[in-house]
Every structure is written in C-alpha cells, then in structure tokens.
Design a protein around this nucleic acid. Structure first.
Lengths: 327, 327
DNA sequence: TTGAAAGCGCTAACAG
DNA sequence: CTGTTAGCGCTTTCAA
C-alpha cells in the first residue's frame, strides 16, 4: 500500500480511505490511486486490515457435513447473499460431533468473525461458554422450537413428522415404519420420527423404527425393507429419513415385485429433484434449504447493520408436504 | 495475550513461544501459562499472528459448485487431511464462471493463503497473472492432461469417455448418444464426450449429443430421452454426464416400458451409492473424488514442508469403469 | 479532503 | 530458556 501511495503521490492513509470510501477522496487523486493499484497489481492484505480495524469480513458456518444436498444448498445460497456484501464464508465440518464442533468454534472465533452460523441447538457446554464470552452474532439454523443462543432460522422437524403422520392417516395407513439414517448422526431425523410417531400412535396407529448403520446406503436400505416386511406382514407405509433412503425402498419394492402404495406406501424427505420422476412419483417433504440461507443472510446483515429488532431474531420457515403417487 | 502473560507472570513472548512450540518452554512456566489460558478463556488472534508471521494457515479452494457430490467429497477429504496439520479451508464457489473465479482468486489471495486449489485448467488471463505474481502454491484438480500452472491432481476425462466407448463397442453397441448437462457449465463433461465420440466413430459407430439446459434435471432428462428415441429409432446406448442423469434415463425407460439394455443400454458417471441398487444395477464410471482430496493434501503438505520433488507435482489418478447390468 | 501518528495483537530476531 | 525490541500492513483518530 505504501508503494501505491508513492506511485500515486499521496499518503498511505489516503489510499486506505480510497479503498474503503472511494467517494471521500477527490476524483483526481482517486484516479491516480486506481491507476497505481492497477499498475502494481496491488491486493490489500486482509489480515492487516482485520487486525487494524479489529473486525473481519469472515462469517463462519459449521455444518455436520457438506456432502449432503440439504446443507450444501443452504451454504450456496448463504454465500450468494453474503458475498455481495463483502463477506467471506469460512466453512467447517463438524461431522455430527460436538467436540469437533467445539474445536471448529474455537478456530473460527480466533478469526474474529463478523458472525457465526451453527447447525441445530446441540452444542457442548464449553462451546456455549466460548460463544457467550465472544459477542459474535450467532445464528442456529435448520431447526426450530428451542430457545437458541441468539438468532434462529429453521423449521420444526417434529411438525414435519406430524405432517406426514397426518397424511398417512388420511390415506388410511395405520401400520407404519420410520426408516432412518443413524439418529446419532442426525438428531433432526430423530425429531421427525418423534413427531411422526406421536401422531400415529395417538390416532391408534403404530410405528416401527429401523435405523441404518451410517449414512444413507441403498443396499442396506433394501435389506432393512425386506426384514421389515417379513417381520411386520401388515406394514402399510414407510416414512424415510431422506429421499435417497426412500429411493432405496422404492427400488427394493420394485426388485421384489411389490406394488408401491398398494403393497407399501413410501414417503421421503428433501424433495430432491429426482423424486418427481421416480415410478411412481414419490411423496416427500420439502425443507426450505435455500430459504434458510437467504434469511440467515438477511438477518445477519441487518444485525451487522445495527437494524434488527428483537422479534425478528427467530424465524420458523416451516415445511411443505409434497403429496405424489407413492402414498 | 498480555493478560495471559501477566497472570502467568512471564513475558508475552514466552506465551507466544509456548503457543507455537510448547516444548521450548520450561515445564513449570508452561503449566502456569496453560492455567492462565484456561482461566482467561484466551483465544489467540489469528489475524495478528498471520500478519506478524506473514503467512497464514488458510488454504483456498475454488470449486464450480458445492452442491455436487463429486466436489463436496473432495472438499471433505481435503479438509479431513489438512485440518490436523493446522490448516483452514476457505471455500469459494465459482459457479462455473471464469470472472467469478477471478474475483474469488483475488479475494483469497488477499488472505495470503498457504496454498490455493483450483478446479480445472480454465482460468481468465487476469487470474493467471494474479497467480503468477503471488508465489502461492497452486493445485489444479479434477482434470489432467494439460500443462498446468504448478501442481496437478486429477484424471483424464477424455480417457474416461474412451473407456465407456470401449465398453459399449465390446457389448456390440454402435449407435450411441451422449446425454449431458450443459457443456458451458461443465467443460469436463465435454471432454468425456469428446473422448467417447472419438473412439465410437473411429470404430464405425455414431454418437448423437443432447445437452440439458442447466444442471441435472430428471424431468427434462425424460423429455430428451423420448425425443432421442423417436428421432433415432436405432439408438442402442446412452452415456450420461452423471449418475443422476442416468437415473433419469432409467426411470423414463421404466415409464415407457422399454427394457433397459435390451432396448436401450445406459451408463452413468460418478458411481454414486444408489447406482448399485437401481433396477437393473447401473454401469457407471468411478472418479477418484476422495483420492483427489487426499493426494492434494499430501502434495500441498510436502510442498509447504519443502520436500516435494519435481516429478511428484503431477498426478493422474485415473478412473475405473464399473460394469453392471444396465449395459 | 488530506496526512501524521499511534496503534491493532502477535511474531521474530536478538541479547542475555 | 526468557525477555526486550522492533515491526507485520493496515485503520483510525486527530489536526491541518
């Protein structure tokens, strides 16, 4: 920056001013400075800037995994809305592990971030105290219904489960199963199960639970479906933790020659693109993945701009049941 | 850090030393310092550290999209291998756009990163000159066969296309189609097409090309398949740009009652989990998504450690054809 | 509008 | 092994 100042024949602080508020510098000097910047290929040093101003343009985001279309859609939207405002996302993978999340929080906090976005409400005690100590704006996303540390943008997974239960009951299904990815990895799937189970049993129905070992695996899903059907010959419908699992069920039924819906109804979660085109088209629930990203950006930007009222800090975006022919 | 030093009754530089090389500080003081750190909940300021040492623990990665299991698998693996060495990934989305990539390069370079990972060989002239000016180690990934700016880890997409052509020819298919996502978005799909087409036509076969408008869309895929089959009644096989598109073809054939393989053979790209369980199981090509991440980490770490020999800077990981019943 | 001066919180010689 | 000293490259008063 010194070089730029020299070449443009102004003081370093004028260059700095120009970089941050171009219109507060006289147009002749502005031009000279810009020319110098271009000639020198000058890139400002973000760290020096961050240190001097003791704030940064970093926004940390911690997700359980990025290999998952839900979170990656949120991340992409969040990035798209935050970048124009000059923010950089620092993305961390907690791998569904609280202590790893804590490590990431520590590491991100040491960047002095302008904001921090976490997935869900479950954090280690230490994490919470770290967050409390820093005055970084926090957003907890992809869930709703608990108090939260600061801002919350998401939806209720219990309600999502209830929505499907309601749909199953309306269709006359009473004997149902919930086929899930590991609850330990995905507590939100567990919440959907709980909401689902509650409403099914309240209406006199029943719900069997099966968990996959790890993440969605089509082959393992097939096995569990066969097992489920032979153990519970009167099973009428399966609600799956996500669309990939539901696809696994569909394919297994196809392989076994069991007509979907007549023999076994299937519903997924995610409303991924392919669900509309399966044979038959799949009933699923659509989470507001993109909207979450969008509203977090809006909320964070408002908070950082100092214009966020109390009642705007918690947002339930809801979910939508997409009823198709598989149920 | 001053506070920590005071509380531990040592000088700030001792604290700094302890933080970086704990074993270079006498054990009694080390203990006092650690106690002080815990008591105060002290978090070092990464920016100040980076500024003072004029290097950072940031490694930038630019991918065309993170909403894609290929790149996100690479990212996740890369992170897993780089984090233990103390590095933070700064992830950017170029959205398949060179000028956006340039913007990201600029922004990441201003962090003074320890390394920068780019997807593919196509960069704007300006990007290249920016990169040349900085002495940041660069890795270009997910492609192979061109010179590259610095290090390269990937595989040849042309070879991938040839592999499938070979397989089709061996199975007796001569009339083929390539069903792709938009080439503008995905130049690597185009390279697969070129390799595929070259070998098919050399062997006296033919290849029709169809491009989807944007990203993989199952409904649009169905339309194109119907169109393709009615325009080319003698079509025998389709090679798709990815597994999701291939799934779309499979589902459309199912809907139309066309037996897969007997009426139309289908191959995908990606070897995603579900491909093994479709009816029939799908032939596909497996790209080394995770290996790419792993080897980039290894290569970068070696370079940063100063121990990377010239011949190790370019790595072709190859691809593997997974032949199943859909072809 | 511009420039001089004083840090931001840490690291890196260096001398002890 | 420890402490002193001088910056890292920028922002931010403050006065001119």
């Amino acid at each position: 920056m010194g070089e730029v100042a020299q070449l443009a024949d102004v003081s370093p602080s004028t260059v700095s001013l120009y970089l941050r508020h171009p219109d507060k510098v006289s147009s002749q000097r502005a031009e000279r400075i810009q020319t110098a910047i271009d000639r020198l290929g000058y890139l400002p040093n973000t760290m020096a800037g961050g240190l001097a101003s003791s704030r940064s343009n970093v926004i940390g985001v911690i997700v359980p995994t990025i290999t998952n279309s839900f979170f990656s859609a949120t991340l992409e939207t969040l990035e798209r809305h935050l970048r124009p405002a000059g923010y950089q996302l620092l993305i961390g993978n907690s791998e569904f592990d609280e202590s790893r999340e804590e490590e990431l929080i520590r590491s991100i906090l040491s960047w002095n971030p302008a904001g921090l976005v976490l997935t869900g409400f479950a954090h280690s005690r230490k994490s919470i105290s770290l967050l409390a100590k820093s005055d970084t704006p926090i957003v907890e996303m992809w869930d709703f219904g608990q108090k939260g540390l600061d801002m919350v943008v998401g939806f209720s997974h219990r309600t999502c489960g209830k929505l499907v239960a309601e749909h199953f009951l309306a269709k006359g299904y009473r004997k149902a199963a919930f086929l899930s990815t590991s609850f330990q990895r995905d507590i939100r799937a567990k919440e959907r199960y709980q909401g689902f189970r509650e409403d099914m049993t309240n209406a006199g129905g029943s719900v069997v639970l099966r968990e996959l070992q790890g993440r969605s695996n089509t082959a393992e899903t097939g096995e569990l479906v066969r097992e489920l059907v032979s153990d519970h010959t009167d099973l009428e419908a399966i609600f799956c933790a996500n669309d990939i699992v539901a696809l696994g069920v569909l394919l297994e039924c196809q392989r076994q020659g069991w007509p979907i819906r007549d023999r076994l109804a299937v519903a997924g979660f995610g409303n991924q693109d392919f669900t509309a085109s399966t044979v038959p088209p799949m009933t699923t629930v659509e989470p507001p993945s993109q909207e979450i990203g969008q509203h977090i950006a809006r909320m964070l930007l408002a908070r950082l701009g100092g214009s966020l009222t109390e009642q705007e800090t918690r947002l339930d975006l809801g979910v939508r049941l997409v009823a198709r022919e598989s149920t």
